[in-house]
Design a protein around this nucleic acid. Structure first.
Lengths: 337, 337
DNA sequence: CTGAAAGCGCTAACAT
DNA sequence: ATGTTAGCGCTTTCAG
């Protein structure tokens, strides 16, 4: 049986609240005897291997120090760059003495218990959540922060400057002399604000040159057939993510279309493997880890338990993470026609 | 303010324990008036939007339904195939009404509070943990299950049949006619039982043919220089993971060594992208998701709270997940010399 | 079948 | 500065 403050109190011959105070470090004891007592209490606590019972504390303080990461789609959390967001998030939360709980939102609604039952002090999410979820969240009173999503202006959020990234990508291609440039999103990609934002950035750059901004939201099969059709095919393609880049790069290799000589390719996200593609992929990159770090700061701030450590300045409720273009081997000037 | 069982009790004119029982479904009420009461209590609970307070319940029941995933190395959790393990784990735990907490083990030892403070009913880990961690775990009384690790025979574990996978890989190469075959591990790979196991499987196959089982544990630079040196270089390489495959495949492309004509390559793990490498990678695959599912079942079984739903048979405390070889384009018969 | 009451271990307001 | 006491909301035993 684990030791409690009562056990310590009994052995030390003091009251439990004294023990609690001493152990919390709330001891201004200047007087001699007091200091001695403090020392003894500490000593007994150590000897007994005392550890505060977190369940009791959570009950008493009415908070668990648990932050939930809500998601409906596993792939979106684990398969993209969001794994890096997760890393940053978890580590940063630990520095605030909080921990992260993974909460997949399923049909059965067990997750509702978690949220409404007060097990979570706050929530984070990568995605625009179903209306029902958002209603429940509001009801629960737990604050919620959006990670890499700007679909709900009401919520504090960490967003990526996707538009700037796509704009830079397009400008790079334009500078190389490309004119027929397309933007491609695989049709299995779930709706997300980044699609809109990246497309916007791309189109802005094209408009500046009065060029047609081709856009495809289709299966890889369809996209590939467009790319290998001889006439009027784009000479450069900006892909929504590294998924598309991978598929297209592979298909071009199969069909003998040379990258970058016959087709320039730009991806998004800079996943590890794309650096080792043949050729290495030119890609738009951003510091995903930082999204997690900022998200952690933001949710802690929202919970408002931050007050004690008031040394950090307030974060604005909308943080933007910048993007930058990494130029590698998959882009080059188009072949003269 | 959230409604409690007392609020309901007052409105229904019954005691709180009656409410608790009814809400738990522990109602054998056959008698007329009783059934009516039950109905009314339920009705009031719904109207008040009652949700059991999880913090109070955790305190009372002395368990949180939280399972911790302990890890020291972010990469090992998020960057390999373990993300799939995670997916399976989280989903399966939900079906048991438990949730997963990510617990990075850091220097500062805040994680100790979590474990020793009784916030976790059980633990899982991918890695052989530092001695100190294991001691504390034992002390805390929370059961611990190993995922894809067999380094501690005392603990229940889910392991991968890595030896069989490597054996199959080697047999495939031998059948193609290769004789100089190597096994390569990148020197940044952290120590893990799978290295030993895969190597063992490889060596077993080589021994059957009385062939020398080359083994390298080195930087990619060193490995590459061996592969491009003309004489006596291996004609086939089994890589410890897809990391090595990716690096080697890329380097061979750079140096103009044809895969598979001049070098056959086999990877491990079957990550998404390897299917789209040029050429597509022959690889050893296993159902990573299943490791998570089994891990969840195992830890729940260890916690012993499973008893209520005794419909499932006991799991043996050592589960093995099988591997199989996926033959794609990166392996072929060696060039005649 | 129902109600009363103890207990889970800690925090915090209040009294000394 | 220290002790007393009242919660926090649920589960569970024990009477009735």
């Amino acid at each position: 049986m684990a030791a409690t403050i009562y056990d310590i109190a009994k052995q030390a011959g003091v009251s439990s609240s004294t023990v609690a105070r001493v152990l919390r470090g709330d001891t201004k004891g200047d007087r001699r005897d007091s200091a001695e007592r403090v020392r003894r209490i500490r000593e007994i606590a150590t000897r007994l291997g005392y550890r505060p019972n977190l369940r009791a504390r959570a009950f008493s303080e009415q908070r668990t120090k648990a932050i939930g990461l809500l998601y409906t789609d596993d792939a979106w959390v684990f398969e993209g760059v969001n794994d890096q967001v997760l890393q940053g998030l978890v580590r940063q939360l630990r520095t605030y003495d909080h921990h992260l709980v993974l909460v997949p939102i399923d049909q059965h609604g067990e997750w509702e218990e978690l949220v409404l039952g007060g097990h979570l002090d706050g929530c984070l999410t990568f995605q625009f959540l179903p209306e029902r979820v958002r209603t429940l969240l509001r009801e629960s009173g737990a604050p919620c922060v959006l990670l890499g999503d700007n679909s709900d202006p009401e919520l504090p959020q960490i967003v990526v400057d996707d538009a700037a990234g796509a704009y830079a990508a397009a400008r790079h291609l334009l500078a190389l002399g490309h004119r027929r440039i397309g933007f491609y999103v695989h049709d299995t990609v779930k709706p997300h604000c980044s699609i809109r934002d990246r497309r916007d950035g791309f189109e802005a750059a094209m408009r500046e040159h009065a060029l047609e901004p081709y856009f495809w939201h289709s299966s890889d099969g369809e996209m590939i057939s467009i790319l290998i059709r001889g006439d009027d095919r784009p000479t450069a393609l900006i892909c929504y993510s590294d998924l598309e880049s991978t598929l297209i790069m592979h298909a071009m290799w199969q069909y003998g279309v040379k990258v970058p000589a016959e087709l320039s390719l730009i991806g998004f996200n800079d996943k590890f493997a794309t650096k080792y593609m043949t050729p290495p992929l030119t890609t738009v990159s951003f510091d995903a880890n930082r999204i997690g770090v900022l998200g952690a700061q933001m949710i802690i701030q929202c919970i408002g338990k931050h007050e004690a450590a008031g040394d950090e300045r307030q974060l604005d409720s909308r943080q933007k993470v910048s993007t930058h273009l990494i130029i590698r081997g998959s882009t080059a000037a188009p072949r003269p026609e």
